[in-house]
Design a protein around this nucleic acid. Structure first.
Lengths: 241, 241
DNA sequence: CAGGGCTAGCGTATGCGATACGCAAAGGAG
DNA sequence: CTCCTTTGCGTATCGCATACGCTAGCCCTG
């Protein structure tokens, strides 16, 4: 038999403008969220869209480009939430909290950022936003950099800690994964961790995130009022680009 | 012609106990440091040792196991350095600084930890050490957990930020990579970042790490003396396991 | 000193994933 | 209607991780 069908019969050829970069990115994101980052292979993504593998390459340079785009898609939607106190603390904390939540919703984000480095477009957008808030609040340029750098370092660290396996049950699964990991350790070598089995697992949650963030903000507040003009009351902050 | 050499002639067979898990791990680490994490393939590692690819599998379960072992090899050597102030601040900061330096020496560490999750053996060792220091210093168990959790989150975040490309010249290469990344951004979209081109790049260095760490420690110190018995003077800390 | 068995190093084969190449059909332009 | 451009896609190549099973060293035992 001939290798290919001579006439027509099952062109299977997709209409014409079926594919788009956005659609591909969306499919990849769904795959990541349901089957994990490792399941993101070109064949898988293509299959999910009902197209051939090589078709993807018309819209994406290569796999790295695709994954980058996914990170961009996720981080690009992060904003300072409504209803937060209209001062730098409220806005910054609200923003970082949103960033953390986005990462929690897509556990693979941390790995992607780690693999591709932090010099990805969307990361800069985050820096720009937070830096802008600090500058408006009266922080000296240099201090603002140091401040948001510290804050982001913390948040990215948190994203890394949390990604291990959390998927749905925010607490449940995560806690038990820590428990089993700790139980596997030799009590003799790790007396402290064993003694704190309970607190440790619980600590790996939102409360803990807030705690550390609070430490940072508290110190920043102290330095702001000590070294420079206190950012006192709420400054205008509604016309942020 | 027969596919294999009939008699002898070039047994090429390695003597006998040439390989060992440790040697393999060491070879992989060298590869990581010289050619990057992506260059770590079973064939490459084997080649560097002058053995066949499949020989590696006698000593490591699979690639993941190998890479895990590398992370363990690196993190397992981190200790509280000598000569630091003998109080909890000095010891903890000294330790975290050592952790950061180890990561800086092996840029791929961050990616490995991100890929494999933080529930790797050596990570627990770090937690145990720092927690022990805090407990000895008089921190209440629960507070100690929150404290070191925040500190580690920060340090891991820092490790992530730094890994992008730093290799040798600690500052040089890193700074210029940030510069070029920033230059590629549209000044219109990122006014703040462009204005801070200089500070931003400089901030991505050891100084910045110390700054953020300082923020955390300062707050912890304040809370320690406020909520609980002040850990005052240097407590004994020379017999740490 | 010879034989047996265990063990370490390794050749081969499989399957998958990323991606270069080039074909061909679908539309639109003239 | 014909030609050119665009887009989906089949095929082929290459590198990698890894299952299997072979075989030669070694050491232990008799």
């Amino acid at each position: 038999m001939p290798a290919h069908d001579p006439g027509r019969g099952a062109p299977k050829r997709a209409p014409r403008n079926t594919l788009s970069r956005a659609a591909i990115v969306e499919a990849a994101l769904e795959l990541i969220d349901t089957a994990g980052l490792d399941a993101v292979t070109m064949p898988n993504v293509a299959g999910r869209l009902g197209v051939g593998t090589m078709s993807l390459y018309r819209h994406v340079n290569d796999k790295r480009d695709l994954v980058d785009a996914v990170a961009e898609r996720v981080m690009g939607r992060i904003e300072v939430p409504d209803g937060v106190p209209d001062d730098w603390e409220g806005r910054v904390v609200g923003y970082l909290r949103a960033l953390r939540e986005a990462a929690a919703a897509h556990p693979a984000l941390g790995r992607i950022l780690a693999d591709h480095g932090l010099t990805v477009g969307p990361v800069f957008a985050q820096l720009e936003t937070v830096h802008g808030i600090l500058i408006r609040a009266g922080f000296a340029p240099g201090d603002a950099v140091r401040a948001f750098y510290s804050l982001f370092t913390y948040v990215f660290g948190a994203v890394l800690w949390e990604l291990p396996r959390v998927r749905r049950q925010p607490e449940e699964a995560y806690v038990s994964s820590w428990h089993s990991a700790i139980d596997a350790l030799d009590p003799g070598d790790y007396p402290h961790l064993h003694a704190l089995r309970r607190e440790l697992a619980t600590a790996a949650s939102a409360d803990q995130f807030e705690y550390g963030l609070g430490l940072l903000v508290a110190s920043l507040r102290a330095r702001a009022s000590a070294d420079h003009r206190p950012p006192s009351g709420p400054e205008r902050g509604d016309d942020l680009g």
